[in-house]
Write a protein that binds this DNA or RNA. Structure first.
Length: 292
DNA sequence: CATAGATCCTGTATGC
DNA sequence: TGCATACAGGATCTAT
């Protein structure tokens, strides 16, 4: 599932293969692909041709391609979210359409095209105005409420710790709240909690500042490590989140490891249902009630 | 306002 | 074999 490191790999691919090119044709093949674009798929398709792509940007799990502004067009961006199963592929125009192709973007240089492929259709594309981010930058309007991510140079560690400790919810839920800190999904939440020896069910407001600082450090570490691995498994003409093969060899200590021995103490990793999904943890290293 | 839970979706895996 | 069910889960919506 694409979380911050996977999305960053895609962003880098888009920056390399799509930035500077001018869109010439857009096809929407599934209505859900543009459901977040309020004016509808026809409007989405008709407003993009002729617009050059100026950059490839990201905050948390959101990706966007700022479009070069001109006299007729204000600052706006092609915004994308991969959801659970979305892929943005750069492929030769003659490559056959694979299954679950939801949208196609062609360029006026007749080079490789951009395809949005999404089996479970939780992802989507839209065209949105850019607004100021309060620090001299811009971001798409639907992303304005999303917090900076831990790899953002302007991420404020002290503010994060304060905001986490202001919440009475379980710490895992707070980690997954994209308005507190963006980019963390179920996998990296479990991995960070395991490294921190924290049970995801611990109330956030009962953790001391040093504990939350340490947790943030582990969040950052696990993301940087995953990014370093992800950067190697892609070939050039293929901008891909290969949810199955590319990243499943990540060295996961907790996520998906039910029944396998904890890397620290050997106790079998347990799986419990939480927030309509699974949580994996070591029942010995990660106690719900802290030892006295 | 903060919080918790339901909901969207479809291919794959599992159970009877 | 075939059908039904569980599962994967990010973001948003609704209810309290």
């Amino acid at each position: 599932m694409p979380e911050l490191p996977e999305v960053e790999v895609v962003r880098r691919g888009l920056d390399r293969w799509v930035r500077g090119r001018t869109i010439c044709a857009v096809e929407v093949l599934h209505p859900r692909a543009t459901r977040r674009h309020e004016p509808g798929p026809a409007d989405f398709s008709s407003r993009l041709p002729g617009r050059p792509i100026a950059a490839a940007s990201r905050r948390g799990k959101y990706l966007w391609l700022p479009l070069a502004p001109d006299a007729k067009h204000p600052d706006e961006a092609l915004l994308g979210h991969l959801g659970m199963s979305g892929q943005l592929l750069v492929l030769p125009a003659e490559a056959p359409d694979g299954p679950h192709l939801r949208a196609r973007i062609r360029f006026d240089d007749d080079g490789p095209e951009l395809r949005f492929v999404d089996q479970r259709t939780f992802g989507g594309l839209s065209l949105d105005p850019l607004v100021e981010d309060g620090a001299g930058g811009h971001l798409p309007l639907p992303v304005a409420h999303i917090a900076r991510d831990p790899l953002d140079p302007l991420f404020d560690d002290e503010e994060f710790v304060t905001r986490v400790r202001a919440r009475s919810s379980e710490i895992k839920r707070v980690l997954l709240d994209q308005t507190v800190c963006s980019g963390i999904g179920n996998i990296y939440a479990d991995e960070s909690l395991w490294r921190s020896r924290l049970h995801g069910g611990r109330p956030a407001d009962r953790l001391g500042r040093p504990r939350v600082h340490e947790l943030l450090g582990h969040v950052r570490d696990v993301m940087i490590e995953a990014l370093a691995q992800g950067g190697t498994s892609f070939d050039d003409l293929y901008v891909n989140v290969n949810g199955e093969s590319g990243y499943f060899d990540r060295s996961l200590a907790a996520y998906g490891q039910e029944g396998r021995p904890c890397g620290r103490c050997g106790t079998p990793i347990r799986r419990i249902a939480f927030m309509n999904r699974s949580s994996f943890f070591c029942p010995r290293c990660q106690r719900r009630s802290p030892a006295r």
